[in-house]
Amino acid sequence: MDKVHEQKFNFVRHELLQLLRAIDRDILKAEYEILDDEIEIVTVYWLTSEGYSSDRKINVTGDSLSALARDVLKRI
């Protein structure tokens, strides 16, 4: 993982997750991953009213940190 991807990984796990939880307390976690060495995905997991976890995958390929945050916020 290069420095930019490492920065995005840490941003999603810490700062973005805090923001997401402030908006929706049912959010359990947010994860950043790289698929096939090119596609960047953020997956947001939250608890549903039925007690199950659900997820949403958001493509953030090539995004800056602010664009990444905007893309995730638009989809939750």
Rank of each mutant, 00 (worst) to 15 (best):
A69V: 02
L19V: 09
T48D: 15
Y45A: 12
D37Y: 07
A22F: 08
F9W: 10
D2I: 08
K74P: 02
H14P: 03
R75N: 11
D36K: 14
D63F: 02
M1Y: 09
M1A: 13
L65D: 00
K3T: 08
V60E: 00
S49M: 12
A69M: 08
M1F: 10
L17E: 02
T61H: 02
I41W: 03
R25G: 08
L68T: 00
D55K: 15
Y45Q: 11
I23V: 13
E50D: 15
L16I: 02
K8E: 01
V42G: 07
D37S: 13
T43Q: 13
I39M: 14
Y52H: 14
Y32N: 01
D37A: 12
R25E: 07
T48N: 15
Q18S: 14
K3P: 05
S54K: 15
A22R: 12
L73H: 00
L35Y: 13
F9G: 04
G51T: 04
D24S: 13
L68P: 00
E33W: 06
E6M: 14
H14Y: 07
V72D: 03
T43K: 15
F9A: 10
D2V: 06
S49K: 13
G62M: 06
W46C: 06
E31R: 06
L47Q: 05
G51S: 08
D63S: 04
N10G: 10
A69Q: 09
E50M: 14
D36H: 12
I34R: 03
K8Q: 03
D36R: 15
Y52M: 13
I23M: 12
E40M: 09
K3D: 08
D63I: 01
Y52F: 15
I41T: 02
R21T: 05
E15V: 03
Q7C: 10
L28S: 14
K8C: 04
L20A: 09
H14C: 10
D26H: 07
I39C: 12
E40R: 03
E6Y: 09
I34H: 03
R21S: 06
D26L: 02
E50P: 06
D26S: 11
D71S: 09
E50L: 14
M1I: 09
L68Y: 00
S64F: 01
A67W: 00
V42R: 01
S64H: 05
D36Q: 13
F9C: 10
I27R: 01
L19C: 10
K29N: 12
Y52W: 13
R75E: 10
I76D: 01
Y32A: 01
G62D: 04
E40V: 03
S53C: 15
F11Y: 14
Y45D: 08
Q7Y: 07
K3C: 06
N10R: 15
L19A: 13
T61E: 02
Y32M: 03
R13D: 06
R13F: 08
D36N: 13
D2Y: 07
L20T: 02
K74R: 10
V60K: 03
E38W: 09
D71Q: 06
S64A: 06
V60C: 05
I39H: 11
S66H: 00
L47G: 02
V4Q: 11
I41N: 01
R70P: 03
I58V: 11
D63V: 00
S54G: 14
S66C: 03
V12G: 02
E6W: 08
N59W: 09
R21K: 15
K74Q: 05
A67H: 04
V42H: 03
D26R: 07
E15K: 07
A30T: 00
V72I: 08
H5F: 09
N10Y: 11
K74E: 05
